[in-house]
């Protein structure tokens, strides 16, 4: 069930980055950062659902949920002063929301290294996005097991 096929939405995001020169990739990451959706207010009363992403240097929290149609939704918060991390979160939120659980679990773990940002952003910073992805997948696994 868990092959490693990159879902279309994430493949499109990856291609969007790879088509650009490095400085423009940073600009695109900033656009993603600005587009990070607000976490729906229904989660306000459930702080326990928020998982801190310890791999990120800034306080980043993610919530993975299964909707009634069986598809995954992902939400994240990250401070405005950490636009790089916000951008990473936004990419994953936009690329993961709407996928089936199997599709999420099939996302290659090295997706963050494949979007052409490693050199522009630095490997250390990319590690934060990997942490976010692995935690997202773990949360989906936990939801399926529940």
């Amino acid at each position: 069930m868990t092959g490693t096929a990159l879902p279309e939405a994430l493949a499109e995001i990856r291609d969007e980055f790879l088509e650009l020169d490095e400085p423009e990739r940073l600009q695109l990451l900033l656009e993603y950062s600005n587009e990070l959706p607000e976490v729906p207010s229904r989660y306000d009363e459930h702080p326990e659902l928020r998982e801190r992403v310890a791999e990120c240097q800034s306080p980043v929290y993610i919530i993975l949920d299964l909707e009634e149609d069986g598809r995954v939704s992902m939400h994240a918060t990250a401070p405005r002063e950490a636009p790089t991390t916000r951008g990473f979160a936004s990419i994953l939120v936009q690329g993961i929301t709407g996928l089936t659980p199997d599709e999420v679990l099939g996302i290659p773990d090295d997706f963050p290294q494949s979007i052409g940002l490693t050199r522009a952003v630095s490997p250390l910073r990319i590690a934060g996005m990997t942490g976010m992805l692995l935690r997202a997948k773990r949360q989906v696994r936990a939801k399926l097991a529940a």
Partner: peptide, 27 residues
Amino acid sequence: DEDVLLYETGHIPGAVKVDWHTELNDP
């Protein structure tokens, strides 16, 4: 800055960015 994009969100007018990871360190 620590964050490589923070400068782009707003900086002192005329300031230039120097990033420690990507510019001051040998790759």
